[in-house]
Design a protein around this nucleic acid. Structure first.
Lengths: 219, 219
DNA sequence: CTCCTTTGCGAACGGCGTTAGCAAAGGGTA
DNA sequence: TACCCTTTGCTAACGCCGTTCGCAAAGGAG
């Protein structure tokens, strides 16, 4: 028998010793620590220390680290503002993607989360809203879901390149290797790349999303 | 002083006790173990056991686990077949993306690798080839690089949905929660989704890639 | 006041990545 | 052949991680 999902397990039965932390308290502390230090160094003990307690105490409110990450992801998914559809689905989706990129910049650890997309209350609300925006669109369901998935993939991808590498030593070593290979004269197209890009990735992002969505949803 | 990248450090100086394993031997064993068990349970000790030795022995050939993963990624990037550009850049790029999806299906652990794209010899070869395919295209460098990044992001995203979740219990719990929320009557668009998709994601993949690339690279 | 349920918390367990120290294996030199 | 020198293989150990367990503490019900 599989255990219930987090969002189906009630908390605070009302009887017994009253809880000092809630599931949300733990989640907020974890998000704060991850915003500051990143997800790789986020341990149960560090989250507990954020609350002034020991590592084992969290397991009263959270089944484990993975579940805590799920809670964190859905928590920041609640930062999406979902205005009523304007009737112009393309504008609405682009605005949504821009919001997603902003959320990723506020919470850079989001790009370190791998796995399948977490569907908590806020994730479902977002999915529902995307489908509502596309309600009048003649495309089929699977086509709309693919567009949604592509949108999310591009948000993550752009956010990753915007953050840069979290390990400066690694990027330096890689840059040195690339320079060494390019100096050998092979890979002429790579060597001919202009080192400066005319505009940053965050400037072209809305246009990229718009073009991609047009390509996917305009016949 | 940052240490050199893996691909700049020579191995096998010719003097001293001859090595029993090479960097490539370790990489191949790690790829084999990851293909079988996944990246999450791939430990230094398990890779070493694949070679019949102890965990600490690997550090003679590899600086650490992260570097081993880099080697693995670049190793499987060598599976790309890079034929001469045909002159039809769109067909060439779509074929390349289909190859990438096949590589991800042969090595499902690739989707678990996060971080920045690894640039080893094979990764550089692939990038060079993409730029060669787009050589005659009038788009600017940054536009081509964005298209390349989008292509890779979509390959990973599609591969992830194709593999399904690695944890069946988790997906079952999430499905139960989604059913519970949908039964409450909110989220009408989500509830109205047809449970069956007319065609699998791998069938629509080439068309999706083609549409996205057209949207990005056709004015 | 006493029971009962729930929570907080520290210690402990197994496993992980990584390191240190030493034995082993071959080439160079006489 | 015998000896040195360099490089490799391997085991034990360290510190840290996620997780579990057992018990003390805190409040409501009777």
């Amino acid at each position: 028998m599989a255990p219930d999902a987090v969002w189906l397990r009630a908390e605070g039965s009302g009887i017994g010793r009253p809880p000092r932390y809630t599931r949300d308290t733990v989640t907020v502390a974890a998000v704060r620590a991850a915003d500051r230090d990143g997800l790789a160094v986020l341990t149960m003990r560090s989250v507990a220390a954020e609350l002034g307690t020991g590592g084992g105490s969290l397991y009263r409110h959270v089944a484990g680290r993975n579940e805590l990450v799920d809670l964190m992801v859905d928590h920041v998914a609640g930062e999406y503002q979902l205005p009523a559809p304007s009737g112009r689905w393309l504008d609405d989706l682009v605005a949504l993607a821009v919001q997603g990129l902003a959320i990723h910049q506020r919470h850079p650890w989001l790009t370190e989360v791998v796995g399948t997309p977490v569907v908590g209350p806020n994730g479902l609300r977002l999915s529902e809203h995307v489908l509502a925006v596309l309600d009048a669109h003649p495309a089929g369901d699977s086509q709309k879901l693919v567009a949604y998935a592509v949108m999310n993939a591009l948000i993550s991808s752009f956010a990753r390149t915007l953050h840069g590498t979290p390990d400066p030593e690694r990027s330096q070593a890689q840059a040195a290797y690339v320079a060494h290979v390019l100096a050998r004269g092979e890979h002429p197209h790579l060597a001919a790349l202009s080192p400066e890009s005319p505009q940053g990735p965050d400037e072209v992002f809305p246009d990229v999303i718009r073009r991609v969505l047009v390509g996917l949803l305009e016949p």
